[in-house]
């Protein structure tokens, strides 16, 4: 049972990565909002990039999730 407990703890630890992802996502959208308030005309042009950055950053969170899954189920 000890290995089982260690797996649980490890899976939990893997989710610490979410702290960085949270910072990153907040940074992306915060920068987008402040930038688009400074120059509203340019906002639609960068929205595609915002979505791309969102997807790339979110993927980091999901890498952590995959690690957690691997620890738990593999």
């Amino acid at each position: 049972m000890e290995v089982e407990a260690a797996k649980m703890i490890g899976a939990g630890l893997a989710t610490i990565a979410l702290a960085g992802v949270g910072l990153g996502l907040g940074n992306i959208f915060g920068s987008y909002i402040s930038g688009s308030l400074r120059n509203p005309a340019a906002a639609p042009k960068v929205f595609g990039n915002v979505l791309l950055a969102f997807a790339l950053t979110e993927a980091v969170a999901l890498f952590a999730l995959v690690i957690a899954f691997l620890i738990l189920f593999a």
């Binding site: 997807a55 790339l56 979110e58 993927a59 999901l62 890498f63 999730l65 995959v66 899954f69």
Partner: peptide, 16 residues
């Protein structure tokens, strides 16, 4: 690897 894991992880996580 990063290209495939990104798509896989998104789909896996969402459906799970």
């Amino acid at each position: 690897i990063s290209l495939s894991v990104r798509l896989f992880a998104n789909m896996l996580a969402g459906h799970t």
